[in-house]
Nucleic acid binder design. Structure first.
Length: 491
RNA sequence: GGUUCCUUGGCCGAGUGGUUAGGCAGCGGUCUGCAAAACCGUGUACGGCGGUUCGAAUCCGCCAGGAACCUCCA
């Protein structure tokens, strides 16, 4: 019980004890990005959330196969704007690039962002364009099973027929009758029996560059197919966890379930997990709404809404300070608070490493460790875990100040715990700029200035001492007089 | 219009019936030649109105405001 992970399953709308299909092995699939522009803050959330899950499951001793796809085929654009072109094709035309060049460019940028955020790479990162044959096979299988029909070279999923045998809408809590009365009429639906049917294979219009031959037409796979296909291929017909943003619940994940069920007779996924959105002024941050800030802009501070740059770890910590199923609101104030909080935590980590043990403890280390693990076990409640880590920070500082004592055994345990929990599980890292090492000339000059200032201070020549400090500050070097001597850093 | 969800102190954000969330800011203090930093301590809350209960931020109802999904979307 103590080490039992509970996760909230969208399918049951309850927290459930997580038991992998095969003891000690976990199959995890997460919807990856469509690579047609730079990732924004909102995109960081699922990848950080599921990175935490991946790290924790691994820490628990599971062998985890983590599959996260790259969508490089391009989903259909809004008909009004894109006139049937997919997003990648459209972007290619604007930038005068080959579609695959666009894909490569933004995939590289995505990978850089992920590395910056200390997000571990998945075990397999399959690309939709590399699984066209498998997708065609699944289309055929669904056709053979009688849950799809072909019209003008396109193949559509027959939702009504599916619903007669299985239930459509189990994940999002919808029923077909409601959908029938509430689905808007969109262009290009004349080919479909019903507006809520969705494409499995789409015939390409003449201007559509990304296309593949098939027995139905030269075209491209449907919106939702790749995840069904690639999860099945790498994780099997049944696997443990599928994650993604809440906005994908319907229709994307609902359709995935329908496709898998239409193929094999049952859904593939045992636990569906959905992270909530990042908002800005209370509204969802989204590419389509134009209210997004890219990760690159956050890291460099180059965006009109940003007061300053925020480091990748500040972003990671900011996201971990909210529970993944709650919305989290972007603001400079919130990010600055996270930055300060993270600095405090990291400073305590350093202090912990330098702590001296006494012969006995006046503090208890076990409760903190237990509470942190209990929090993560409770549906990845990272904000609670972090709150308990801060209780530990207070304890660490008190030991340093001498008002509390810690035994050698407790100290070892505490060190080991913080190392594991903060770095390995939460995936934070110390990103403090190295003060020395990159420029020996500068180091030497600084040593000289600090030593001159020390002499001035010894002579109570405050004018000279302050001049050195203030003028260094003016050119971007900060001096701090600490108990352990003078520290300097580039601002 | 349909479905689902949210409303916590100056800000962010936990918390599902009784016990301090936590971070940031503020305030007080320690340290310091001064400053900064650091550390310690500390107040303010549960959208409104009813109801259930010995007791509700937490359960129920109504009202107000907001959001997500229903269309690509993390």
């Amino acid at each position: 019980m103590g080490n039992q992970l509970f996760i909230y399953n969208t399918l049951s709308r309850k927290k459930e004890a997580f038991k992998p299909l095969v003891e000690g092995r976990v199959g995890l699939y997460v919807c990856g990005p469509t690579v047609y522009s730079d990732s924004h803050l909102g995109h960081a959330r699922p990848y950080i959330t599921f990175d935490l899950l991946y790290r924790y499951l691994t820490f628990q001793g599971n062998k985890v196969r983590y599959v996260r796809n790259i969508t490089d085929v391009g989903h259909l654009e809004d008909e009004v704007e894109g006139a049937g072109e997919d997003r990648i094709t459209k972007k290619a035309r604007i930038e005068q690039l080959e579609p695959m060049e666009v894909v490569q460019k933004y995939m590289n940028s995505f990978h850089r962002n992920m590395e910056n955020l200390n997000i571990l790479p998945p075990s397999i990162e399959p690309r939709a364009s590399g699984h066209i044959l498998e997708q065609q096979e699944m289309v055929q299988q669904i056709l053979d099973n009688g849950f799809a029909y072909e019209t003008n070279g396109s193949v559509y999923f027959d939702v009504e027929k599916y619903n007669q045998k299985h239930k459509y809408g189990i994940l999002s809590g919808r029923n077909l009758d409601d959908i029938k009365t509430n689905t808007r009429e969109l262009d290009g639906q004349s080919e479909k029996k019903n507006s809520f049917d969705f494409a499995l294979w789409k015939k390409a219009s003449p201007e559509h560059i990304m296309r593949w031959p098939s027995k139905w037409s030269d075209g491209f796979p449907g919106w939702h197919l790749e995840c069904s296909v690639m999860s099945t291929k790498y994780l099997g017909e049944h696997f443990d966890i599928h994650g993604g943003g809440m906005d994908l619940t319907f229709p994307h994940h609902e359709c995935e379930i329908a496709q898998n069920t239409a193929c094999s007779g049952s859904g593939a996924v045992r636990y569906w997990m959905h992270n909530n959105m990042i908002t800005i002024n209370g509204q969802k941050m989204a590419r389509s709404l134009g209210n997004f800030i890219t990760l690159k802009e956050l890291f460099t501070g180059k965006h009109e809404l940003l007061y300053q740059a925020y480091s990748p770890m500040t972003i990671r910590f900011f996201i971990l300070q909210a529970h993944y199923r709650s919305t989290i609101d972007f603001s400079n104030e919130a990010l600055q608070a996270s930055e300060k909080g993270l600095e405090r935590l990291m400073a305590a980590m350093k202090t912990l490493g330098e702590l001296k043990a006494s012969d006995s403890s006046t503090v208890e280390v076990a409760p903190i460790m237990e509470k942190c693990f209990a929090a993560i076990n409770d549906d990845l409640n990272s904000p609670i875990a972090i709150a308990h880590l801060f209780d530990g920070v207070k304890m660490i500082n008190s030991i340093k100040a001498g008002s509390e004592k810690i035994s050698p055994a407790d100290l070892d345990e505490l060190k080991e715990f913080y190392q594991t929990f903060v770095f390995d599980i939460l995936g934070l890292k110390d990103e403090e700029m190295p003060v020395t090492g990159n420029n020996q000339t500068l180091d030497g000059a600084m040593e000289l200035l600090i030593s001159l200032r020390k002499d001035a201070k010894a002579n109570k020549d405050w004018a000279t001492a302050d001049k050195i400090r203030d003028e260094l500050n003016a050119i971007g070097i900060e001096l701090k007089d600490t108990k352990d001597g003078v520290e300097w850093s580039l601002k």
